[in-house]
């Protein structure tokens, strides 16, 4: 019985400290390194970043919302291929932001698509904060 309880307790605490927290911390450390006055990520800045349009990799105006829509609780559509994309907000889609490797990969790709460069730690942290609090 004790064993079972320990396992339960362990999985509960592990569950609380989601892997994404670790990644957010890494991003915060990096942001602090480039700018000593860094005082935390900001969902408002992230929101602006998410909705602002840029001339992307394909030479056309595009924003994060072009594929993920204006409502992150709704399914979107890939503007390049017409394939449906499940909702981006973790509230509507439990699998979101649960796999750090996957998150890093898509931020790298999607920043390139929209901004034609990789995102900075500050930008990535801000936009993730926006998505997590949506």
């Amino acid at each position: 019985m004790k064993k079972v309880l320990t396992v339960l307790w362990l999985s509960a605490t592990l569950g609380l400290a989601a892997p994404i927290e670790g990644y957010m911390q890494t991003l915060a450390d990096e942001a602090k390194k480039t700018d000593a006055s860094f005082s935390g990520f900001d969902a408002k800045r992230g929101e602006k970043l998410f909705f602002s349009e840029h001339v992307g990799k394909k030479g056309k105006k595009i924003s994060c919302a072009s594929c993920h829509t204006n409502d992150l609780n709704k399914a979107g559509e890939n503007v390049f291929t017409a394939k449906v994309i499940d909702p981006l907000s973790p509230k509507a889609n439990k699998e979101r932001l649960s796999d750090v490797k996957n998150v890093k990969k898509w931020l790298r790709r999607n920043f390139n698509d929209v901004y034609n460069r990789e995102g900075t730690a500050l930008e990535k942290g801000d936009v993730l904060t926006f998505i997590r609090n949506y």
Binding site: K57, K58, F80, K105, R109, D113
Partner: peptide
């Protein structure tokens, strides 16, 4: 890195 003008890189 330039897969039909999109980034599809993998680890």
């Amino acid at each position: 890195d330039n897969h039909f003008e999109t980034d599809a890189t993998l680890d």
